[in-house]
Amino acid sequence: MDDNKEIKDKEKSMTRSEFLAYMSASFTFMVGSSIFGRFVTEAEAKAAGKDNTKVEKKDSSGGSNTDTKPKHTEQDYDPFNHAWIYLIDTNKCIGCGMCVRACKIENKVPDKFNRTWVERYHILEGRGALIDSPEGGLNGFQPESYSKVTKTFFIPKICNHCKKSPCSQVCPVGASYFSPDQVQLIDQKRCIGCGYCIQACPYSSRFMHPDKHVADKCFWCYHRITKGYDPACVHACPTGTRKFGDMTKPDDPIRMIISTERVQVLRPEMLTIPQVKYLGLDMEVR
């Protein structure tokens, strides 16, 4: 009973972030149009030859070069005192694929599958989008030349750790669950491998592990964040595209960005309330 009470208190304290999530979902079209406007000006700026909009100052918030000791340790970690949040600033992504590689090494992700991946979009004039993601961007991207490209950008993707997640909703045995610190986790010792969650995820973040025969996906490196470190992909990102924060800390820089800037989520029409927020999405991104 005490635990339930704790959860309820937690929910009360989290109304602010939930409110923001709802806002981001319901105002996506408005925000979308404004971001789209931003892209047009960006393309113009690129054409004019002064391209300072994308990677402004590299060390603005992403990789500070003097990381100190972890903020907390595994022993004093209390899942009820954290609410993790992930921010992807797509304007800064250079498509190096280091995040994908770091994830592969850290989580021993099987070949051909990806817990995180990077997509490259070439928006062609009046002809939709041309997208590629060779091996999920594991080895970076090769140069391509298409005609009539109006804009082009990289979109890193990851499990969205949705608050109203379709995946953990459909798990029949309670193996897939939303932890108190707001991470979607899979209990791989209970997973029966039915694959229903894989069908239910609108982002295709989940996959069937070819050797373990259980569902697998990004856990935001739960074993790292509980020790006080960033997830491997955030750590490996050289440009500060990927950022990781805690919504319960008032002075958290990521919380400041999410609460002050216009952020978006992927596929807002699904109303899954993703915890991965994006800066600078395009309408062609799904």
Binding site: T66, D67, I105, E106, K108, H223, Y229, A232, H235, A236
Partner: peptide
């Protein structure tokens, strides 16, 4: 256990 490094340079 962690495999990838935790801190950047320390």
């Amino acid at each position: 256990p962690m495999i990838w490094q935790g801190t950047r340079n320390d």
